[in-house]
């Protein structure tokens, strides 16, 4: 008897037929890379819906803060937001990671030059605090199809970085793959270069069926030595993997920003 009762309780759900899932809220940010503060705006213009969000890295649940007005962000971190509505299943969270830039170099150089189609403003584009998007020719991205890319920077006063992050692009269909290795060298005054950080891609990158990613960052932990010169050597992915339409030919490397934190 008890069972029948529960089955009957379930029937409305069946009669309902399809319950659709909500999309993620529409998220816009004035600057992904910022010096003092950034503003995140969320929108989900569907009658009866609520946006809940977090800024502490957790996933928003039913008790997360309700979005009412633009969020002021003053520290690096990830904003995540979810739409909720009684008639629909909850959807995925929209998320955006923002970076507070602690240091900017006073001068910079780049070897070799980027491809002429994606040359931006050369090395300066890597420190212009402007995030590139799906428009590869916006001038915000530098595209390379070469061997190791070397970026050198100088700061007038010595700086102690904790991390260096590289903003890169992945788009398998466009033959653009993440770097294979990043080496960072530092020097102070007339001193010699010394290794201050290394990052290596994981073996066996599973690129198949992976959607394009315009928000992709490689994080290099830096030995906090005061340095006034930095050299960043970025080794591209190399030949495209087996199973790719361009297998064996060189992958593209796209760089957007180098972030000193």
């Amino acid at each position: 008897m008890k069972h029948l009762f529960f089955i009957l309780l379930l029937l409305p759900a069946l009669a309902w037929g399809q319950r659709f899932q909500l999309a993620a809220p529409h998220l816009t940010v004035d600057s992904v890379f910022f010096r003092k503060q950034a503003q995140v705006e969320l929108a989900f213009d569907l009658d009866g819906s609520t946006i809940r969000y977090t800024t502490d890295g957790t996933y928003p649940n039913d008790s997360a803060a309700v979005y009412k007005k633009a969020i002021e962000v003053t520290n690096s971190g990830t904003v995540r937001a979810k739409a909720m509505h009684p008639d629909f299943l909850p959807g995925n969270a929209a998320e955006k990671t923002l970076f507070k830039i602690n240091f900017l170099p006073d001068s910079m150089g780049l070897q070799p030059a980027p491809d002429s189609l994606y040359k931006g403003k050369g090395a300066a584009t890597l420190f212009d605090l402007r995030k590139g998007d799906a428009d590869l020719k916006s001038g915000r991205w530098l595209g390379f199809r070469t061997d190791t890319v070397v970026v050198e920077t100088r700061c007038k006063k010595p700086v102690s970085l904790k991390t260096l992050q590289l903003s890169t692009l992945f788009d398998a269909g466009a033959w653009i793959f993440p770097p294979k290795r990043i080496e960072v060298y530092g020097a102070s005054g007339k001193g010699n270069w010394q290794t201050v950080g290394v990052w290596n891609a994981r073996e066996g990158f599973r690129w198949k069926d992976l959607p394009s990613k315009y928000d992709q960052f490689q994080k290099v932990i830096i030995r906090p030595l005061p340095v006034d010169r930095l050299q960043i050597r970025i080794v591209p992915f190399g030949p495209l993997p087996e199973g790719h339409p361009g297998a064996g030919q060189a992958a593209w490397l796209f760089l957007d920003e180098i972030i000193f934190m």
Partner: peptide, 16 residues
């Protein structure tokens, strides 16, 4: 139970 079922179906359609 029949009443519940009926109410449930109605609620379901209304809720679509």
């Amino acid at each position: 139970n029949t009443a519940l079922l009926g109410a449930g179906v109605l609620a379901g359609f209304k809720g679509e």
